[in-house]
Amino acid sequence: MSSTTIQAIFDDDDVLLRAVKNLKDAHYHIEEVFTPFPVHGLEKAVGLPNTRIAITSFIYGLIGLSFAIWLMDYTMITDWPQNIGGKPSFSFAENMPAFVPIMFELTVFFAAHLMVITFYMRSKLWPYKKAENPDPRTTDDHFMIEVSTANDVKSLEDLLKKSGAKEIKTKA
């Protein structure tokens, strides 16, 4: 038996939040929610697991730090050590304080850029990507829930209507 996906439009974030709770209580599966702005508490209500993107940023930062250490050790100490103003050019440990600013900058550079690239890739955002919000009003002031059900479409529609949905339609 194929399942049907119902799209319900709301025009208030608090009503939307209550509708999500009602749907959850009735054990419906919420496929997707489209909102014009981040609605606080919505991901908890839908039961979305936390994003791990901050962890990736931490790892990218460590990579940046290691790269900075390697770069400066290789160029300044190993490959071509020079006497610059009598600074200790032949020992990484002794020259390290002068390397701290670049270590910091490259840590931030890697952590920030690679995290943003990860975000764009994971959320499939890039130039020429077609927008996938089914209703253009969901970037303005409307909210849409997509709920799928295998059997009783009528009772789902009733529940949505009771929860304050303004429009209800079946996804083509």
Partner: peptide, 27 residues
């Protein structure tokens, strides 16, 4: 359309968006 990178306002996108903003602010 080109500039928005196909942003659709999905719940998961918003969750990541907020996390990314927070981490970028921290950085």
């Amino acid at each position: 359309g080109l500039l928005s990178f196909g942003w659709s306002g999905r719940l998961k996108d918003w969750q990541r968006f907020e996390e990314v903003s927070l981490v970028l602010a921290g950085l």
